[in-house]
Design a protein around this nucleic acid. Structure first.
Length: 245
DNA sequence: GTTCTAGAAC
DNA sequence: GTTCTAGAAC
């Protein structure tokens, strides 16, 4: 095996207390939330269902397998993930305020065709600004409109839809989704097409700077105002630019 | 999932 | 000539 493609499965079988705090953010009876080793946004974590009955290594291998195994089991599993994800989202929002002085949107969803085995729900901040965001596949796999990223709410809605619709959506056929990863690079903020990854990354950084500027202007919090007066805010922003590729 | 790198793109 | 992409990984 080239790398450890089953590392999430290994973790999901362990006692949460046995995982290092560098890896584990939090856990519940049914899930573990870990830091993505190659975050594609400023905040990026994964919620893994723990492998405890009725879940098995096999039936929680990926979204497609889970959804096609048993509808009730799948719904319970995804709903548990959603409940835990809501708490994690709150933790990230607290951290956003602590570190940046404002909140911005957070996306939650699954890759239609995952590369790593064991079901994992992505929770990431809506910026896609990160040194680990390096190629077209990375970007399109998280772009909220491309269709490869399946939003959690949408997946949950399949359970309440017509059985024929459930059947169609849960096919999750590789040949239908993989071409989406090769689509042109389009900014998720404004729709502008960028010719290559370096230009996209630079544009995303500009868009992010605008998001931050708008937020700070709209919500002039006491601490923020004080930081700006003392120039606390500038060095942090400069440092971030220099570490981005 | 990443790393490496040949050769395409500019 | 340099930047950038995209396929192989023994």
């Amino acid at each position: 095996m080239a790398k450890n493609m089953a590392i999430f499965r290994t973790w999901a079988q362990k006692q949460p207390s046995s995982l290092s705090p560098d890896i584990l953010l939090t856990h519940t009876d049914t899930s573990m939330t870990v830091f993505d080793a190659y975050p594609k946004s400023i905040f990026h974590v994964l919620v893994l269902p723990r492998i405890l009955p009725p879940l098995t290594i096999t039936n929680s291998s990926d979204l497609k397998t889970l959804l096609r195994e048993d509808k009730k089991l799948a719904k319970d599993c995804i709903q548990n993930l959603a409940d835990d994800a809501a708490k994690v989202k709150g933790m990230i929002e607290d951290e956003m305020v602590k570190r940046f002085g404002f909140k911005w949107p957070i996306w939650m969803g699954f890759h239609a065709v995952p590369s790593m085995v064991h079901l994992h729900l992505h929770i990431l901040s809506a910026d896609l600004c990160s040194p680990s965001m390096k190629n077209k596949k990375h970007y399109n796999s998280f772009h909220p409109k491309v269709g490869f990223f399946l939003h959690l709410d949408e997946v949950l809605s399949w359970f309440d839809a017509e059985p024929s619709y459930y059947k169609t959506m849960t096919k999750l056929d590789k040949t239908q989704y993989e071409p989406k990863l090769k689509e042109p690079l389009e900014c998720f903020h404004c729709g502008k097409e960028l010719k290559n990854i370096p230009l996209l990354k630079s544009h995303l950084q500009d868009e992010w700077d605008k998001v931050a500027a708008r937020a700070k202007k709209a919500i002039p919090q006491t601490k923020r105002a004080r930081d700006e007066e003392t120039g606390e805010d500038e060095p942090a922003r400069k440092k971030q630019e220099s570490t981005a590729e």
